[in-house]
Design a protein around this nucleic acid. Structure first.
Lengths: 337, 337
DNA sequence: CCTGGCACTCCATGGTCCACAGTGCTAATT
DNA sequence: AATTAGCACTGTGGACCATGGAGTGCCAGG
């Protein structure tokens, strides 16, 4: 069905439309691309492409516009990730170079990515699984409540409040804290569940209830905190785009943390670039956007994801290049710690 | 100059314009408000109001629109803060009721405020001055770096990385940590500087350099962290408004944390509602917005600020009511801890 | 299979016109 | 002196229309 030239035409349509944001016609195509055939031939190819659903006309006597299916084919088979320019690579280095604080790294990364792509950037905090416990602190808050703070060796801090406890003495908390630290300090987070398995048995019966509550919150926080924290930047870049959907919907979707998490979570191939185009997105408000996401991590251990949200008519090769480059660089920085 | 009736006319103009977003004419005013005079008289008043700069015409033969100066007068003398409806108060309670975790409180507060006002809400994390130190943790990270984590009794956690140190032994860090905790555990943050004053003298000379570095970062973090953290919600509500300024500018301004901090910082009367209207705002991009902000705190100690950003043509009484109510409620919740 | 030619379609642009909302002014009224 | 009715005047926005142009689909010839 789709011979070489038709694919070339599709590629040209996508590229031109991304550039100009206007339906592209056969003449313009023949002029700007070395297809070696006349507009009439291109027209014939376009009819075929349209029949197969890769492009569409806004109305008769307008040029063609790629459909989601067209973008999909373009991304899968017609384009390659575009390496960054030297200037862009310098920008990454000067932006992220010698940053140490985790919050700072994440904050800068997300701004950098937004700036490079001129779109909305999303960065997820690195997962905790690879970290080990440095210290657990228990803080009695009064009112039968305790705050638990877990500090990891990578410098991330998790805090949780445990409440609905029976009255609890200062002494009991101290004992429990000491015991807890003895049990799990130095532990990888993944190993914590095993490490605390027999703790309740060591606690004097009158405090066992508290110990159990604390432990259950601890375990729960280890699970949840994986993907909890997400940062966003560059929403102002949305203003430049005109969406099919009201762009209020887009903003609303981006304000929902759960949506963002799921958005990044959709990435199928770990350690690969994933692109989700238009209607492929699960969320109503994002049906006229595309999401480019990638894993980042240390070695081949994936820690979390980063991504970019933009209009379906985005510069896929360039965006993918930026996302990949930033992901790699962040991985390096985290590894250097 | 401005007799009672002219003020009433101004008030009516503001109210109608806020409702309809269309220039309001003399006839419409006479119809909808019990001013007791004819449109012609209102016209005369309007001329006076226009001469004094309180209202303006987009063009001849259009109705009048309030100027920033007009809104200012309206806010200062012609309106009163509107108490929330019972439903709204219930909403606040069910939204914030029995929330314990500080992050959770702040996150919910900002969403609540955005929802109540249908505008962009800003909430600043409570200042640390009133808190006391629960525990200080020092974590050697390797590479001559140490992470410091300060846990306060209100459950807030501050972390900082100290680097550029000479090589440092595990042992030395342990000693320093113990010493530090002995010195400042239980201290109010405001008292920390005094409490650590003579610490370096107690440290063995070979580790004094490290101790000094750690202390200086500690002191610095106490100063900075006051106003550092700010949360935003409801940007999607901006989409419904049409700004004079491109609303990309507004979004851009709101992405700058420093701008937000300064925006809230402008509040002059502590423990009072502050309104900054249009051109009064220091930031370019926010010249067509207004900011309503308030302190919140426990007792009469102000801890931080919350605020709302919206178009100059906002419902000031309603917005002010919401901001004040939420500020008070958050104060209560924090006090209950 | 490609291409030039041609008739056709639809949109975007710009012009004209008109109704409307609202004004400012004047003269009359209270 | 303040208010009001009446009236002429004026931008704006919408409706309507004509026009040019971009782009198509199709056909017939190479």
């Amino acid at each position: 069905m789709l011979n070489e030239r038709k694919l070339a035409v599709l590629r040209a349509v996508v590229e031109d439309f991304v550039n100009t944001n206007e339906p592209v016609g056969s003449r313009a195509l023949a002029d700007r691309h070395p297809l070696g055939v006349s507009p009439a031939t291109i027209r014939n190819d376009m009819v075929a492409l349209e029949e197969d659903g890769y492009i569409a006309q806004p109305h008769t006597s307008a040029g063609r516009v790629p459909t989601d299916k067209g973008y999909r084919l373009f991304v899968d088979r017609l384009s390659s990730v575009k390496p960054l320019s030297a200037a862009e690579r310098r920008a990454i280095e000067s932006f992220l170079g010698n940053t140490v604080d985790l919050d700072e790294i994440v904050a800068r990364t997300v701004r950098l990515l937004a700036q490079l792509t001129r779109q909305v950037a999303i960065v997820q905090y690195p997962s905790l699984t690879r970290s080990s416990v440095q210290h657990v602190e228990l803080i009695p808050l009064g009112n039968q409540r305790i705050m638990m703070v877990v500090i990891t060796d990578t410098g991330r801090v998790e805090q949780r409040v445990i409440d609905g406890l029976e009255a609890v003495s200062e002494r009991a908390v101290n004992d429990l804290r000491a015991m807890l630290n003895r049990a799990i300090a130095g532990c990888y987070l993944g190993d914590v569940p095993d490490a605390v398995d027999d703790l309740p048995a060591q606690v004097p019966p009158e405090h066992r209830g508290i110990a159990v509550s604390v432990l259950s919150v601890l375990l729960e926080s280890l699970v949840e905190s994986h993907e909890e924290k997400i940062v966003l930047a560059g929403t102002a870049n949305l203003a430049a785009v005109d969406f099919a959907a009201s762009f209020r919907d887009v903003l609303e979707a981006l304000e929902e943390n759960m949506v963002l998490i799921r958005l990044l979570g959709e990435a199928k191939d770990p350690s690969m670039l994933t692109v989700s185009i238009g209607e492929e997105n699960f969320h109503e408000g994002l049906r006229s956007t595309s999401v480019v996401s990638a894993d980042y991590g240390v070695g081949n251990q994936s820690l979390a994801k980063i991504g970019v949200v933009g209009p379906t008519r985005m510069d896929y090769p360039g965006t993918m290049g930026a996302v990949r480059a930033v992901a790699r660089y962040v991985g390096q920085i985290l590894a250097g710690q």
